[in-house]
């Protein structure tokens, strides 16, 4: 599977990265090269191998259902580029 500019453009769209034509020229061969390189994994027969997502051999611990966090609106909003009346503000979203 070789990667062309259109593929990179589409992937950049999914990742919400605005790329210029120059960016596309630069990134396309790099991404294509890396993806081609990782395809060497195809050499290994992994038919009976289960995927491994995490190496920490512990059980997932759960927390009790207690409302003991939140209640600090100011701290939540303090780094916001735009906020108003306790809300984050973004350009109008049209459904």
């Amino acid at each position: 599977m070789s990667i062309d500019k259109e593929t990179v453009r589409k992937v950049a769209g999914l990742a919400r990265l605005s790329l210029t034509e120059d960016d596309l020229e630069r990134f396309t061969p790099q991404v294509a090269g890396i993806v081609k390189w990782v395809e060497m994994l195809g050499e290994v027969n992994t038919e009976n191998v289960a995927p491994l997502a995490n190496v920490v051999n512990i059980d997932l611990k759960l927390r009790p259902d207690t409302a003991n966090d939140g209640g600090y609106q100011k701290e939540i909003l303090v780094n916001a580029p735009e906020s108003m009346e306790g809300f984050f503000v973004v350009p109008k979203v049209v459904e």
């Binding site: 599977m1 990667i3 593929t7 990179v8 992937v11 950049a12 999914l14 990742a15 990265l17 990134f27 991404v31 890396i34 993806v35 990782v38 994994l41 195809g42 290994v44 992994t46 191998v49 289960a50 995927p51 491994l52 997502a53 190496v55």
Partner: peptide, 25 residues
């Protein structure tokens, strides 16, 4: 870009799952 590509529909098994299997090995 690479990460988005390897997780995207149609490539997930070939790249991401394959890599997780190699990770086990």
């Amino acid at each position: 870009l690479i990460g988005t590509y390897v997780l995207s529909s149609g490539y997930y098994d070939a790249y991401y799952i394959k890599a997780q299997k190699l990770r086990r090995l």
